[in-house]
Amino acid sequence: MATTCLVVMGVAGSGKSTVARLLADRLGLPMAEADEFHPAANIAKMSAGVPLTDADREPWLRALRDWISEHDAAGRGSVVTCSALKRSYRDLLREASARVRFVHLSGTREVIAARMASRSGHFMPPSLLDSQFAALEPLGDDEDGITVDVAASPSRIVETVCEGLDR
């Protein structure tokens, strides 16, 4: 039987890392930070304020998919952060052997821009936020997952996710 991987998705600054860490700790699962899977060329592009293309993202998404499958093969569920902005990206992640479920952290541009402005040390500049919102395709009704408003506290978001995914 396949394990489950929770992919915490959303635009930059939506709180993916914070929520994923809390979920992983609560559920006792290993966590992968998608940013760590980007090739150097992708990081250089984003650092320069250049949005990634689908071709840039494909090897990154395949590496994440493979990490999910490796943990599934070892009988471990997992939690992954990944923007997963487009359905085609989520489709690629769903190729993993695990059951892949999405947690879409959704919020207004204003709320997320304010969060991005207050963080430091991240390669994603706030100038790319508009391109992220432009690319975002929210979860479809037929996709396995839940959408949660980021206006709540991270701990409340985790409660909402755990309650929502149990249904």
Rank of each mutant, 00 (worst) to 15 (best):
D25S: 12
K16F: 02
P39R: 11
L23P: 01
A32N: 13
G15A: 01
P39M: 09
M31Q: 14
P30K: 05
A34T: 08
M31C: 12
R21A: 15
S14L: 01
E33A: 09
P30W: 03
P39N: 14
L29N: 04
D25R: 06
A41S: 15
A20F: 11
E33C: 09
L22A: 14
A32M: 12
T18G: 07
E36Y: 11
A24C: 12
H38M: 03
R21E: 14
L27V: 03
N42Q: 06
G28P: 08
F37A: 08
L29Y: 05
H38N: 02
V11Q: 00
A41P: 09
A34R: 11
P30V: 06
T18V: 08
S14C: 09
G15R: 01
P30D: 10
S14D: 03
M31L: 15
T18P: 06
N42T: 05
A40T: 12
H38L: 05
A41K: 13
L27W: 03
E36T: 15
A34Y: 08
G15V: 02
L27K: 05
A40E: 15
D35G: 11
T18A: 11
T18N: 05
S17Q: 10
E36M: 13
V19N: 00
R21V: 14
A40G: 12
A32K: 13
A41Y: 14
A20R: 10
A12E: 10
T18E: 07
L27P: 03
G28C: 07
A20V: 09
L29P: 05
D35K: 08
V19Y: 02
P39V: 13
D35E: 10
K16S: 04
D35P: 06
A34K: 10
L27Q: 04
H38K: 06
A32V: 14
A40S: 14
M31T: 12
I43E: 04
G15Q: 00
G28W: 07
E36G: 13
G13R: 00
P39Q: 10
A12P: 13
I43N: 00
G15Y: 01
A12T: 15
S17L: 11
A41V: 14
A34F: 11
